[in-house]
Write a protein that binds this DNA or RNA. Structure first.
Lengths: 196, 196
DNA sequence: GTCTATAATTCGATAGAC
DNA sequence: GTCTATCGAATTATAGAC
């Protein structure tokens, strides 16, 4: 009884996560999700009260993914500088998805920032950014950049967001790879105390 | 007779440009545009065959705005390096709009890149990027960076896009201003032949 | 050229049988 | 818990009077 419930709920979230990423939130209908999850439309309302609640479930799912990634990065190295280089390198395996659909967190935030959306949804989507922002800030602090850690974290995330937007627009993988290389060098420099 | 026609057409494009920017393309309905332009819904189809055609008109309108901006920058200085610094500085007066709604070109491209859209629309929206990309490439070439001009132009645009995305998400004007300052310094360095 | 009425479809959401 | 049938509202788009 409970296992089946959890399964169906997970199937819906899983299908919605892919579709919201590939098509956008507003452009994805219940019919789309139902078809991919192979669950009748009317059954959705047993698990979620509204489409917004499905999105909240999707965001939670992404938050869990992000936290697991950051734990792996922390386990991989005790050096905050190397951890952050590992973070930007970890974007490379996702290059093909970024090329096709952009950054899942960035494009969702961009879409939900537009008017007409409930404010609560926007704040929840921004938590995807907050998660990485706080982690990067911690790493910069640990590397000795206590004073500018917040701004440095924002800068690094902005660089990745910009690279994702342009890669999505121009489908040019070597540009993205070059940006990752530049960011690795930038992190090393900043950790050595050389601001730029 | 013709003056009235041109006026109404321009009113529709003007209202749609604002709404597509503030709410997004898919989230904006004919009713929204009709209300702001103060023109009955049914009248739209005398001027445009479909919603897509309104968007094409909006993109043309933005292209004209962009070309005029670039002409002003060229007239302001003969030095390609100073022209590009002027370009990034020209983002500052738009900071409040970027904070509220992101970059109009970036968010439109991000939205249209999602599936379900006609391919022609995506290509037209990308012309907004192409316009600046080609101009920046020309300036980098003129500054002596013939070899890397294409990649440098992409990098600069990516930096601006990323700053817009993060400013839109976090509403933090000093971050954006700092990014502009960093980019001015970066342009100066690159023009002096110091790659980074 | 301008505007109203409405068609045709799709949307998110609900009711209720089983 | 599962599924079908369907509602009311909103959407793009059209027909046709003036």
């Amino acid at each position: 009884m409970e296992t089946s419930t959890t399964d169906n709920r997970q199937r819906i979230i899983s299908a919605a996560r892919e579709l919201f990423y590939q098509q956008g939130y507003n452009a994805t209908s219940f019919s789309d999700i139902a078809q991919r999850a192979e669950i009748p439309r009317g059954n959705f309302y047993y698990y979620f009260k509204s489409k917004d609640e499905i999105l909240l479930g999707v965001i939670d799912s992404w938050l869990a993914f992000g936290r697991a990634s950051l734990e792996n990065l922390e386990a991989a190295s005790p050096d905050p500088c190397e951890r952050m280089r590992g973070f930007v390198r970890s974007m490379l395996p996702m290059l093909d998805n970024i090329r096709q659909h952009g950054c899942p967190f960035g494009s969702l935030n961009t879409e939900l920032r537009k008017d007409n959306n409930e404010e609560g949804l926007r704040d929840r989507a921004r938590e995807l950014f907050d998660m990485y922002r706080a982690w990067l800030e911690t790493q910069f602090c640990a590397s000795g950049q206590e004073e500018d850690a917040g701004m440095l974290a924002l800068h690094l995330m902005g660089r990745l967001q910009g690279a994702s937007v342009m890669t999505n627009a121009y489908q040019q993988p070597d540009y993205f790879e070059n940006e990752i290389t530049l960011l690795e060098a930038w992190i090393s420099k900043v950790c050595e105390g050389q601001r730029l």
